[in-house]
Nucleic acid binder design. Structure first.
Length: 199
DNA sequence: AAATTTATCAACCGCGACCGA
DNA sequence: ATCGGTCGCGGTTGATAAATT
């Protein structure tokens, strides 16, 4: 689809919305309904794509939308529904009137995920202590039995890759998700230095 | 007080599904 | 049946405010 603005040689705007654009959008959505976003974008004269208009309306301008802090009740519902449905933000949002999927997704990422991780960390720390203890015992036995093979490691001692591999974690499980990348970057576990950088 | 890091959130992007011609 | 336009969703990015060094 080639938009009118593009056809006229005008560039579609991106980035934060101005008050004037908001007013224009409200006017045209009131007039034409909250469907046909590409049409609204074209006839309103807003130099935005339909998609952008839709998002602005749904996340910010539509009536009955709640702004501000998420209550503890809402938080409980989010936790419960996330447990049930996973990252189905739109679905979760339907159970929280006035909240948008985007808001819930952001809230989850910034607040709840950390809480969940803290809980998981506690469990995991207990688990990994047992795991490491068993692993060391096993390695010693294997070594003593003459089954030791030198690790082909060109990245030098003490690197996270070596440490992770040595622990038996698949490296993909650590690096594939941007969530986990940040997870390790932020060192929320608090013990990454002591575990990963054993010199 | 300045520089740097971290947290937050609005907005964008890519993709798949749906729908009508 | 299929093709183009549109919509909705989930993941990701980037700007900026707040906190920390």
């Amino acid at each position: 689809m080639v938009y009118k603005a593009v056809m006229q040689g005008e560039k579609l705007r991106k980035g934060p919305w101005h008050e004037e654009e908001d007013k224009q959008l409200i006017t045209f959505v009131t007039l034409l309904g909250n469907r046909k976003w590409d049409y609204i974008a074209r006839v309103s004269g807003i130099k935005r794509c339909g998609k952008s208009c839709r998002l602005r309306w749904l996340n910010y301008l539509r009536p009955n939308i709640k702004h501000g802090d998420i209550s503890t009740e809402e938080e409980q519902i989010i936790l419960q529904l996330h447990e049930q449905w996973g990252n189905k933000w739109a679905r979760i949002a339907r159970s929280l009137p006035g909240r948008t999927d985007n808001e819930i997704k952001n809230y989850w990422r910034t607040h709840l995920r950390r809480k969940m991780q803290a809980t998981e960390q506690e469990k995991f720390q207990c688990g990994i202590q047992d795991f490491l203890f068993q692993k060391v015992e096993f390695d010693v036995q294997t070594y003593e039995a003459g089954e030791h093979k030198p690790v082909d490691d060109t990245s030098g001692p003490g690197t996270s890759k070596t440490s992770l591999d040595a622990l038996g974690f698949p490296s993909s499980a650590v690096t594939n998700s941007p969530y986990e990348v940040r997870f390790f970057d932020n060192d929320v576990w608090g013990w990454s230095d002591s575990i990963w950088d054993m010199n």
